[in-house]
């Protein structure tokens, strides 16, 4: 059974990734660029799902990780004159440390308390960006465009903002995230994480140190969110406190739940649908927030498992 579902799910995901890869040759300019952005944001959602979907911990402060990756990369490139890839690594390393420290504190709580602790740490981080504005450029933020070098591939130079570079960079990021996500799902660690989600005390009774597994999930989730943030900084060049605001913590919750928490591909589907929903409705009415709110309420009432979660329950039992 497990082997069969692994094969099925690999086919399914490889299919979706192939589709995404081919799409870049067909899509008109606007959608080409939108899909690039969706893939970066979806990576953030996939990272979020490591924690919510597999471990059952809901965080309201993930913007802190996204923004710390983004700011570490951006400020590293700006002040320390790192290369773009150096900035990316710096962002990843910085977020790793942040999420480790954060996890050691926050994981002493669980459930609603965990949610609020994450919210508060997230707000503290956001406020510190404003407070140290001389250094971080505060609310206005700044553009990396002038400080980014060029990407050299086979002796040819490309701008990071080049549409093809952007698309494929985002594509590689998402592919890596999805593969890692699948891998974890089928690994022993993933099984234990899911066991924690389903019944934490029983897992503990079985002799597993729940804290370390949760810490692993959180650090993984945080660091990957940070890498998504750093990638966003490189590809879209703008860095600002808006990425640390509470709204940016709420977004991945919506994307993940809409697509299906605990499914590998769900966060990507959710991000894509939400992006285009807002994009489409905002062309018709300025009250797209109203529609988003209603969708959210209806979703949570009728499809609490999200799109892919419902599909998995009804038809695609093998779906990872």
């Amino acid at each position: 059974m497990r082997k069969k579902s692994l094969v099925y799910s690999l086919f399914f995901q490889v299919g979706i990734l192939l589709l995404l890869f081919v799409l870049q040759f067909i899509l008109p300019t606007y959608h080409h660029s939108s899909v690039s952005k969706i893939m970066v944001l979806a990576s953030y959602a996939v990272a979020y799902n490591f924690l919510l979907g597999y471990t059952g911990l809901m965080s309201l402060g993930h913007a802190m990780f996204f923004a710390s990756g983004m700011y570490a990369a951006g400020l590293g490139i700006y002040y320390l004159e790192l290369s773009a890839l150096g900035g990316l690594l710096f962002g990843a390393g910085f977020t790793l440390v942040i999420s480790l420290i954060f996890g050691l504190f926050a994981l002493r709580t669980s459930g609603v308390s965990f949610l609020i602790v994450t919210l508060m740490f997230g707000q503290t981080f956001y406020l510190s960006i404003l407070y140290f504005n001389e250094f971080t450029f505060g609310q206005d933020g700044f553009s990396l465009a002038k400080y980014l070098g060029k990407l050299v591939i086979f002796n040819r130079e490309y701008l990071y903002s080049n549409p093809d570079i952007r698309y494929n960079f985002a594509f590689i990021l998402l592919t890596a995230y999805l593969l890692i996500s699948t891998f974890i799902m089928f690994s022993p660690v993933g099984r234990i994480l899911i066991a924690i989600r389903e019944n934490e005390s029983r897992t503990e009774l079985l002799g597993y140190n729940v804290f370390y597994y949760k810490l692993f999930a959180l650090v993984l989730s945080g660091t990957f969110s940070g890498i998504a943030g750093a990638t966003h900084a490189l590809l879209f060049t703008y860095i600002g406190s808006t990425f640390a605001e509470i709204h940016h913590s709420i977004s991945p919750i919506l994307w993940t739940l809409l697509g299906g928490a605990g499914t590998v591909i769900g966060p990507f589907i959710g991000t894509g649908i939400m992006f285009y929903l807002v994009d489409f409705i905002s062309g018709i009415t300025s009250n797209y927030q109203l529609v988003v709110g209603v969708v959210l309420i209806l979703m949570i009432i009728w499809f609490p498992m999200g799109i892919m979660g419902t599909l998995r329950q009804k038809w695609m039992k093998w779906l990872p």
Partner: peptide
Amino acid sequence: ILRKVKYHPESTIVATIGVLYVIQSVTLM
């Protein structure tokens, strides 16, 4: 809304975020 999601803590949070958006945008209108 809340009764429909059985007061499940996480679901309630998402549902009340939805309520927040609805109230805010109706007020704006």
